[in-house]
Each structure stands twice: as C-alpha cells, then as structure tokens.
Amino acid sequence: MIPASYYLILSAVLFTIGAVGLLIRRNALVILMSIEMMLNAANLTLVTYSRFLENIDGQVFALLVMAVAAAEVAVGLAIIVSFVRHRDTTDLDEINLLKG
C-alpha cells in the first residue's frame, strides 16, 4: 500500500500549483481552473485522511465540496460572460476601473 505521505505531498504540490497559477496568470478562465485545482487538492487531502483514519466524514465532505465548487464555477463563468460582453476580453489586467 502506498503510504499516506505520498498523497499528502501530491495534494500539497497541486494546491501550490493552483495558488501560484491564480496569482500569476491573467486569463479569467485559467484563474477559474486554478481555483478548481486548489479545491481539488484539498479534496485529495480529505479523501486521503478519510481512507487512512478509516473515518467516513472526509469523503462526505469531499463530495459536498465538489457540489460547492460546481456552483462557484457556474457563478464565476456567468460573471465572466457578463464581463466579456462589456469588454470583449478575458484578460483580468483589463480590470482597471476600480482603483485608489
């Protein structure tokens, strides 16, 4: 059996990739995917612990998080579509009306 630490390190790496991607990429769609990656990294951690602790809560939580992530992406895409209608771009560097 593969030790738990492998899964945990993998999810930590995935989480970092997601977080860094969100900070350095400027395309709104890539940013949404980075958010998904962060949430799924957390899910992997939850499921890993759930398996190794033999406690079902983590798996249940992971399922609920998937539903939440789907809702978040649905809302995110809707907001981006409404932004694109105004600006015709998905580049977040074009967001510049609010400053000060």
């Binding site: 969100l22 949430l39 899910n43 907001i79 609010l98």
Partner: peptide, 27 residues
C-alpha cells in the same frame, strides 16, 4: 461586474485556503 470578478476570484482563493486548512486539521 469588475467588483464581482475581483470578489469571486479572491473569495474562492480564500475558500481554498480555508478548506485546505480544514482538511489538515481533520487529518
């Protein structure tokens, strides 16, 4: 719309941190 995008991106970013923290505590 701009405010909504900013709020969504940073809000989801923070949710990610919160969730990962919860997963570690649970573990």
């Amino acid at each position: 719309g701009e405010a909504a995008i900013k709020y969504l991106v940073l809000g989801a970013f923070s949710s990610g941190f919160l969730l990962y923290g919860m997963a570690l505590v649970y573990g």
